[in-house]
């Protein structure tokens, strides 16, 4: 049975319904509780086992020792693919995925974030972007060579 204009009723009904479009930048979108967004690092819980570094598929995490049993993390959110494997890997639950997803930046340096004592400091603000990138990527070949 063929009927031209089969969607007529549906289409006319839409005229009187609210549009399905979400006016996104004006209306904020709430992510579900399990959403894997931007990572958060709790430096006080970190024991420096570096398992997250080892498991990260895109090499976005660098854990640095800054003192006796004190560690800080440098995250490169431009490389991160938001799989949150590090959150699962961490034995001390020092990492957490937040619902934050609006991460676009014009300056790559702003995506490299150093977590110190629970408070994130953008590397670009703390130090010139170039040096921050260098510290973030430099340890990689070394650790590879060890294995």
């Amino acid at each position: 049975m063929k009927r031209p204009g089969r969607m007529f009723h549906e289409v006319m009904r839409s005229m009187f319904r609210k549009a399905a479009t979400v006016r996104y930048p004006f209306v904020k979108v709430q992510m579900p509780a399990r959403f894997r967004g931007r990572l958060k690092f709790d430096a006080s819980k970190c024991i420096g086992c570096k398992l997250c570094m080892k498991d990260c598929p895109s090499g976005a995490i660098t854990i640095q020792k800054v003192g006796d049993k004190r560690f800080e993390a440098v995250f490169d959110f431009a490389r991160c693919m938001y799989c949150a494997q590090c959150v699962d890997t961490c034995p001390k639950k020092a990492l957490e995925a937040t619902g934050e997803f609006e991460l676009a930046q014009l300056d790559r340096g702003k995506l490299i974030v150093t977590f110190k004592n629970d408070c994130p400091v953008a590397a670009a603000a703390a130090a010139p972007a170039g040096t921050a990138t260098a510290t973030a990527t430099a340890p990689e070949p070394k650790s590879d060579a060890h294995e």
Partner: peptide, 21 residues
């Protein structure tokens, strides 16, 4: 539009709309 229903569901179950991980 209706596909959004299952996409949102997948996001709620797994944490992402596309790469469920």
């Amino acid at each position: 539009r209706d596909r959004e229903v299952v996409m949102d569901l997948l996001a709620a179950l797994t944490g992402n709309r596309v790469n469920y991980g």
